[in-house]
Design a protein around this nucleic acid. Structure first.
Lengths: 148, 148
DNA sequence: CGAAATGGTCAAGCAGGTTGACCATAGCTT
DNA sequence: AAGCTATGGTCAACCTGCTTGACCATTTCG
């Protein structure tokens, strides 16, 4: 495979990823969750199952724990999450989503589904599902790094 | 297609895009082009063919022209580009890549090819090429927005 | 028990972006 | 040709998100 093809693939992938991010965020905001940024969505993805500590979150986002702590301050102040004492470790604090945080997460899922539906209209459901399979096999396990 | 599938697809796509960005940038730096950030790569992609004005670049990157001008200052200072008078418009200045700028662009292509090769090892060339075709059909035409 | 490691926060600084103001040149309308 | 408006570009001030560095509380291990 030629360098130019690799570059074309990279450009297309990054363009699609950028637009997807934009669409999800726009969709979330349009559903009434103002002041949300894409980084919040990545945080929610980590918090959603069972909550997480600030340090966990920092590792997941690929930033310092101070930055993660600031981000938690923000989503707590806006009512999307709260800090609870950690059941097993008196040093740590477990950050969990509030009801509003869950609602926002569902809004993000809906927005993502809308964006994907647009792809299904162009490619058909089979190809989109195939793409999911392919991407899942090459997706890294490490931290989600929105670093660009 | 369910919301959860759409979310999984989105997460995989963003994870792959994030890692690709990281790998390309690391590869560029490893090839001797220090101090480069992913945003520079997006700028080079626009400058490469025939140069561009600061305003063009700003539209392409989705930032203000002041921000684009600062970025041009930086790549000029580092020797990757230069500002030349615009042939048709005395107000405008055409930003073009220098030899070093072209070398950096080629390094980025090589790094991208390395990253794609890793995918070919997992998926096979056919599926990677199929992915290119699919992505090309859903890629937006608007500005590349690394906004997240 | 005491030393080192870990979870978390506070404070200061930096980097990259934004808004606002401004100048020079183009282009259009008379 | 004259004048108004639009466009390309830069300078300056500010804002936001993240980093580094210092520090305290608690846990873990020798």
């Amino acid at each position: 495979m030629q360098n130019s093809e690799a570059m074309a693939l990279s450009a297309a992938l990054l363009a699609v990823a950028g637009e997807l991010t934009q669409r999800i965020n726009d969709g979330v905001v349009a559903r009434g969750f103002e002041g949300m940024r894409p980084a919040h969505g990545f945080a929610f993805a980590r918090l959603a199952p069972n909550g997480a500590t600030v340090t966990d979150l920092a590792a997941h986002l690929g930033v310092t724990k101070q930055a993660a702590s600031q981000l938690v301050d923000e989503i707590v102040r806006k009512g999307y999450a709260e800090r609870r004492p950690h059941p097993d470790d008196a040093r740590a604090r477990l950050v969990v989503l509030t009801g509003r945080g869950w609602a926002c997460t569902r809004a993000a899922e809906e927005a993502a589904a809308d964006a994907v539906r647009a792809w299904v209209d162009v490619l058909g459901e089979g190809e989109v599902r195939a793409m999911l399979g392919q991407l899942a096999r090459i997706a890294p396990c490490g931290p989600i790094r929105p670093t660009w």
